[in-house]
Write a protein that binds this DNA or RNA. Structure first.
Lengths: 326, 326
DNA sequence: CGGTTGCTAGAAATCGATTTCCGATAAAGT
DNA sequence: ACTTTATCGGAAATCGATTTCTAGCAACCG
């Protein structure tokens, strides 16, 4: 409950608060013995500067916000680690917030980040058009988006080329003999969903296959959505000979549906999906997987953010990393 | 980049800053028309109080810290949600930090929580003996631990009775005919690991089976650790007829090992494990699972924390929720 | 030897809010 | 009608740090 302030330290060391501050910050202009006395007093009292008070004067914090849509998703977990590693190397800490793809929650956490004057924010926006980051931008808090783009503001973004990756996966399926490829798309508001759908269409065109509306069903990027979407697709007549699912959790759902129907892959139906799924142990061994360099996405996003925080000015940058098909 | 302060609002509304503050906080003692003018000015300028400055005066924040050992683990994910729901109901926000079971990282985030003067902290300590929370306690920041206990300080804790749950699972395995039950334990520093090991021993004793040192191998609560531990156990001669794994991620590893050896469960060997694993789709259908009410753990931990924050004083409380065997 | 330069360290202003204290005004009581 | 009381709102102090400004002192130079 104690409140040890710079003044207490100053008194004990018999110097002025200004000197204590100098010892802690821009060091050199303080005499050896004073410096020692101050350090001793600090240790003795267990003094820690009040970061709020410090901020009031300096406007500098060392906490980054990482606002993501679903911490359940291993995709994001590895990204968090990449960001944390880059941040701690630079002396910053990362706090996480989970939005659950919920715009209200997202707005609340953006408010928190702004109110706490975080040094910068890495965001995977729940919506390209309805997520608003002006609260941050108008306060000068830099923002970098990961995975998804944002249409409401021009900010840096780190991700992969979703269009191309999706296209390649479709071509791969066609090479395996598929002709009727069902696509489980993501939420309409998310740019990755749109990009992947667009890649799906490109892939069909490139393969000379027709695009059919009925073969596309939207899900919510969660397990349940994938399950329902797959069920819808599998009721079609004739039924698809392949499913292409646009994220990992929905793929789990789709596999559940296939099980329920007694279908196995790849014998009865081929599967392709976005994102790493190695944690499912074998479920994904026999499907085409598009994996993204998630750790690297987090790392680079954080480094970009740190450069913005340091004050570098350059046009909004899109870092596009390679996704791999395997 | 703009800095809109209470002074700007006061000027525009042609009142004093004190009045603006009164409008925002303890309302009633301010006249209708002034109140309206102030509100209009606030809206017009998009004013938001600087929370650091406010804190300096009031010493009250509305951010809770949730410091957990592994956000990858679905166990914690659901807990986070429980805590978030309880917190937001009370007007608090939750920020997460991920320690990766790493004591250094953990210490860093405890420092962050203290430096940021978070209102309270929910912690799943990486070590019962080496995790130090005095930084928080001496500043009056209440702490509640979840899942694991802490030996370095007497604080509230919410979790399940790990000893009993483990014991029951062992008895269940014995009922299924198992006589040589291998146990994959968790890290020595974590209380849940010790409790579960102890429950395993109790279960054996209650079933009249001998305890054998060689049947216990320690893992690190991660996939790799489970894999290695299972491999060690399966090299024993005679090999175990059951494996009891003390958390979900290690169970994944153990299953990987069994696959590699060409063994299937429950025909060749029986499995029991702690924690929900429904996200593994079928992997866990045929094993004995001890599931914990994770959402509820998070919710109750948060409510306990909020009571402490509100200043309630009562002896450190241990809330023990029921784990279920299925 | 006097005056200038160069440091060091303290006093005081400052950041942006809240809150205490107090004066002014209006309402109420005699 | 005049004093007393209540209420409202402004001036100023405060929270805990940083930073500017300045005084004091020593060293250096001509």
């Amino acid at each position: 409950m104690s409140r040890i302030t710079i003044k207490d330290v100053a008194e004990l060391a018999d110097v002025s608060p200004a000197t204590v501050s100098r010892v802690l910050n821009h060091g050199p202009t303080v005499a050896e013995d004073l410096r020692d006395r101050v350090m001793a007093a600090i240790r003795q009292l267990g003094y820690r500067p009040n970061s709020q008070a410090r901020f009031l004067r300096t406007r500098a914090t060392t906490v980054l916000g990482l606002i993501i849509s679903d911490i359940t998703n291993p995709f994001f977990t590895s990204m968090v680690r990449g960001a944390e590693d880059a941040a701690s190397k630079a002396g910053y800490s990362v706090v996480l917030a989970n939005t659950d793809e919920d715009l209200d929650k997202e707005r609340r956490y953006i408010e928190v980040a702004a109110a706490e004057n975080m040094a910068g924010v890495i965001l995977s926006p729940a919506s390209a058009t309805r997520t608003s980051i002006e609260l941050l931008l108008e306060r000068g808090v830099p923002v970098v988006t990961v995975d998804r783009r944002l249409q409401t503001a021009k900010v840096d973004r780190v991700g992969v080329n979703n269009v191309r990756a999706a296209q390649e996966a479709v071509i791969r399926l066609v090479d395996q003999g598929c002709r009727r490829i069902g696509f489980i798309a993501g939420p309409a508001e998310v740019t990755t969903a749109a990009d992947r759908l667009s890649g799906y269409k490109h892939g069909l065109r490139a393969s000379g296959l027709p695009f059919s509306r009925e073969l596309v069903v939207r899900g919510d990027y969660r397990i349940e959505g994938g399950r329902a979407a797959a069920a819808t697709l599998m009721r079609l007549d004739p039924r698809p000979d392949a499913l292409f699912v646009s994220n990992n959790l929905m793929t789990l759902g789709a596999v559940m549906t296939l099980r329920d129907l007694g279908l196995s892959y790849p014998s009865d139906i081929k599967l392709a999906a976005f994102d790493d799924m190695s944690w499912t142990l074998g479920l994904s061994d026999t499907m085409t997987l598009i994996s993204q360099p998630t750790y690297e996405i987090g790392r680079q996003a954080c480094e970009l953010l740190l450069r913005r925080i340091a004050g570098e000015r350059f046009p909004p940058r899109h870092v596009v990393l390679g996704a791999t098909l395997d």
